[in-house]
Structure formats: structure tokens, C-alpha cells
Design a protein around this nucleic acid. Structure first.
Lengths: 98, 98
DNA sequence: CAAATAGTTAAACAACTACTTGACTATATG
DNA sequence: CATATAGTCAAGTAGTTGTTTAACTATTTG
């Protein structure tokens, strides 16, 4: 993540601003990777609704997806989060450099 | 910040999800404290619009305000941010304990 | 009290968002 | 090819949000 505009940083926070999506992200924060069906099941939502939120999380760069066969595996992109958090939460950037 | 519900954490991110408000927060992240007129001037917005966004930032706990005479001084509440970020960005909590 | 500074509030509008349902596409397997 | 699994997409509805304008309140100072 070289540079993110104010709008792009706001879009990352917007991706985290819905309880359903925040739950998805928090689930992913505690796992290496999960496929769509697993995520939907853990979050207790339909696949259609996951697909809707998944697109938003992907478009904003909060998660990365990779197709393997029928399934798509998903993981957090911590660099994107860090870029968005940097100016609000400087400590995270400074301290992760340790 | 003892415990924050999923909804409350989402509300913090929602407070940061608008470019205008994110700018306000980033301005405050680089200063000890500022009064409303200073903030509005730096952000290039009207006082009426600041007041609208200021309420959202206060209600979600992202900033704390204190009246001194005519002016209200405002500063970030980093504990509230940390509580919201914790499950998404575990490193910030762990590392700030160092 | 009068005037200036600092901030609030309500109304109105346009734009956006989450969710459900049902039909659709893609990949793997028997 | 048929079936099952995995996920997408479009349409519709209901609710929310950001901004402007203009009038209003609160506090300080002359």
C-alpha cells in the first residue's frame, strides 16, 4: 500500500462500519483463511448476504480472495488496514516496525 | 473502555467512515487539543457542519469535549479507538502494553 | 444592556446502504 | 450428462446519512 487518499482510507473504515461486516472481519482476524461457506456459517448469514458484503470488503482492499477449485479462500489484508489506520493510530505503525 | 459491543465497535468505525470526519480525526491525532473554530478552519468546513460531525464523534466516544468559556476544546479518546480496533488489529493492543 | 464570538438546531433534499428473495453461473464429481 | 456444491446478481424496499441554509442559544467583553 504505497499511498491511500483520504477517500480510500475512509472507505476502509466504511467497510468496517457495518456490524455484519465487522463480524466477518473479526472472524478473519482470528484465522489464517476461510472459505465463503465457512465464513457465512460462522457469521450466521446467508451466502447471498455474504457475497454482498464480501464484494465490499474486497473492493476496499480489507480482504484478499483466492479461488481454489469450487471454493474461494479469504484472508485479511493487514497492510491495507495499517495504511488506513496510520494517521489515526500512529502507534500501530511505529510499534510494528520494532 | 471496559467492554464494547459489536454494534458499538461498528459505530466507532462508522464515525471514521466519512472523509470529512476522518479528516477531523486525523487533524486531532496530530494535536493535543483544538477548539471548534480552529478545527472547522483547518478542515475547511462551516461551523454548522462541524457541529453535525462533532456530535457524531462525541456520541461514538471517538473524541472528548470540554467547555472552557465560550470555546469547547476537543481531543481524541485513544482508549475508545483502541477498544474498537482490538479485535481487528490485535497488534495495536499487544504492542501498546510494552 | 449591547455587540461579538462560539456553537447548535431544524428542515429539506439527494444519495446511499443493508437485507431478502429468487434466479442465475461456475466448478467438481459420479 | 446429471447432480451437488459454491457463490453471484438483480430488483425491490425500507431506512440512513451528508450537506446547505437560516434562525437560534450561550458566553464573554465593552
Amino acid at each position: 500500500m504505497p499511498e491511500m487518499s483520504l477517500e480510500d482510507r475512509a472507505r476502509v473504515f466504511s467497510a468496517l462500519s457495518d456490524p455484519t461486516r465487522l463480524r466477518l472481519v473479526e472472524i478473519l482476524a482470528s484465522e489464517e483463511e476461510l472459505c465463503g461457506t465457512q465464513i457465512a456459517h460462522r457469521a450466521g448469514i446467508s451466502l447471498a448476504l455474504l457475497s454482498h458484503h464480501w464484494k465490499i470488503l474486497s473492493d476496499t482492499g480489507v480482504v484478499k480472495r483466492e479461488r481454489r477449485g469450487q471454493k474461494q479462500f479469504c484472508r485479511l489484508d493487514r497492510d491495507a488496514l495499517e495504511s488506513a489506520f496510520a494517521l489515526v493510530w500512529p502507534r500501530s505503525r511505529i510499534q510494528t516496525k520494532l
